[in-house]
Design a protein around this nucleic acid. Structure first.
Length: 521
RNA sequence: GGGCCUGUAGCUCAGUUGGUUAGAGCAGUCCGCUCAUAACGGAUUGGUCGCUGGUUCAAGUCCGGCCAGGCCUACCA
């Protein structure tokens, strides 16, 4: 069977800090799409990693009295650990400090150079030593008496000039505008696309892509110039190529997976991905990725996450409090696609209990319990299906997956879950309508058919929720004795329906109900 | 200042190219059920679709203005 290649990435995390809820959200979102496509007959490659060079890392390392490499190693480890904690199915974890990435970034540089898009110039501007940042002319206030330039934060800015290599980004202003026009799906959602287009329309300035070694040595050396290291964005963005074999453009993985289907990123770094990246690639004569997907941010109890407020949530803590699949589900269900969302304890408890414990979890538990107790601990045989049976099954076999695919194509995971939970509701309504507990005495054969139908509905639900709650779905499928090779979306069909006579074990609830005490934790 | 986005029931969200009495889930209320994780089902309360003009036979859906919230406006990533 020929599978369609599908390459998806997260942004690489900057190792100046440690993982928080925002990182968790991005990587879970990407993981869900990767798993979804794998189950839907795609050959998926999923890349994530860390961005480790640059001034901030060098400075922070110095403050901590360690080398940049030691510091990066330490923090990169926390991001690697997060992929394990969150059960992320990435195929590789790239670190920009890896030797093969250095080769890739340098190869990228050479390509830009060969295309005539790199030149040595001077980077000049107003720099605040205190704030370690450059400011544009119009951001500064001139003190009339002294003619001193003051930043909005009140620190002094001085004019500095520094030798630097530049990328001829200005040359790409019109080319990019045309590119966006011809590739309307390149930047999503559209609000981000609009922002980028209006930004580019103002005209692009050339981009400084190196730093002199005297100022910054923690980076990838510029080819053929010992005195410079590459500036981080050219370095960082190239990771998407490195991860699949670049600069070996003849490699199997590179040929198969490039161009990427999705770069999933936070909305704050849209510009780098939607302007610099395609410009670099066009200059290097490499194909551009299909879509830059910019997600929103998550507020905590209505407030921006920040160290000063002290409301920064750690992935570990969240998993501890709510459970891994629970937190995955909450984030995917409650954060609308591409928009900012909110995280609240009460909100999380409500959502998790209502949908997972009371909804799907209870549906599986009540059904399997009845089968276990009333059908000799095995999947019952069934008689002819009634109209109600057929309606429910047909809905599950055809409509559910179809609708879910449609919304997942737009990366609307929260809508996909809504579609799936509609079926959970249907199934619970079906049980009450059929009342198998009453049939037990009146019509045991009919009871068996009803329970059989339900078992197959649960099978299909468990299959389709695998991307979002992989462990719990696995537990459900294990309890139904579905073999590992019968868990693809292609098996959501009557052709793979439950086999009567299959022995089952004593059922165990997959989604425990969270108590109020846990909410207070 | 310029540009973009959002504003639909208490809460979180759906509402295709404008077309019958505006939907779902959660929360609330009432009734039912007892297989199940005191879970489930049914019914029901609740909205002048931010405000205001206009286009149209017809607007949550198009256009103008206003109000509120948010975001972008280049080298920290």
């Amino acid at each position: 069977m020929n599978k369609t290649p599908f390459y998806i990435t997260t942004a690489i995390s900057y190792v100046n800090g440690v993982p928080h809820l925002g990182h968790a959200y991005e990587i879970i979102l990407t993981d869900v799409m990767a798993r979804f496509k794998r189950l839907d007959n795609h050959d998926v490659y999923f890349l994530t990693g860390t961005d480790e060079h640059g001034e901030k890392v060098a400075k922070t390392a110095e403050k901590n009295g360690v080398t940049p490499k030691e510091f990066a190693d330490k923090n990169a480890a926390t991001f690697i650990k997060m992929t394990e904690t969150l059960n992320i199915s990435n195929d590789d974890f790239i670190r920009t400090t890896q030797p093969h990435h250095h080769l890739a970034a340098q190869a990228m540089w050479e390509k830009l150079h060969a295309n005539g898009d790199i030149y040595l110039g001077k980077y000049e501007g107003w720099y605040s030593v205190r704030e370690e940042a450059y400011f544009t002319e119009d951001e500064l206030i001139t003190v009339p008496e002294t003619k001193e330039r003051i930043t909005p934060n009140g620190t002094e800015a001085v004019w500095v000039e520094e030798e630097s290599y530049f990328f001829k980004l200005s040359k790409y202003t019109d080319i990019l505008l045309k590119f966006y026009e011809n590739n309307p799906d390149f930047i999503q959602p559209s609000t981000r696309r609009n922002e980028i287009i209006s930004f580019v329309k103002q005209g692009l300035k050339d981009l400084s892509i190196s730093r002199h070694k005297d100022r910054l040595s923690w980076g990838i050396p510029v080819p053929n110039d010992e005195n410079h290291v590459m500036y981080v964005w050219l370095d960082a963005l190239t990771n998407y190529l490195t991860g699949i074999g670049f600069p070996d453009e003849a490699s199997e993985t590179y040929k198969k997976y490039w161009p990427a289907n999705y770069h999933v990123i936070g909305k704050d770094i849209t510009r780098f991905h939607a302007i610099y990246w395609p410009a670099f690639l066009l200059a290097a004569q490499i194909e551009t990725p299909k879509t830059i997907w910019a997600h929103g941010f998550i507020n905590v109890h209505g407030q921006k996450m920040s160290k000063s407020i002290g409301n920064v949530l750690s992935p570990d803590g969240l998993v501890e409090t709510y459970g891994l699949d629970q937190i995955r589900y909450f984030l995917m269900r409650e954060i609308p696609h591409g928009q900012d969302g909110n995280f609240g304890h009460e909100q999380a408890i409500n959502r998790i209990n209502a949908d997972l414990a009371n909804g799907l979890g209870n549906l599986a538990q009540r059904t399997l319990s009845m089968i276990y107790k009333n059908c000799d601990q095995q999947i019952p045989d069934h008689g002819d299906f009634t109209e109600s049976d057929k309606a429910l099954l047909d809905n599950v076999y055809t409509l559910m997956l179809k609708n879910v695919r449609i919304v997942m194509n737009d990366f609307k995971v929260h809508r996909a879950l809504e579609e799936i939970w509609r079926v959970v509701g249907d199934a619970n309504a079906y049980i009450d309508e059929q009342a198998p507990w009453a049939l037990r005495k009146q019509n045991p054969e009919r009871m068996k058919t009803v329970l059989y139908v339900l078992s197959d509905v649960i099978r299909c639900l468990a299959i389709i929720i695998q991307p979002v709650v992989p462990q719990s779905a696995q537990s459900m499928l294990d309890q139904l004795k579905i073999s590992a090779d019968e868990r693809d979306f292609a098996m959501i069909s009557s052709d793979y329906a439950m086999k009567p006579g299959t022995d089952i074990d004593k059922p165990q609830g997959v989604f425990p109900r969270l108590t109020v005490e846990e909410a207070a934790a």
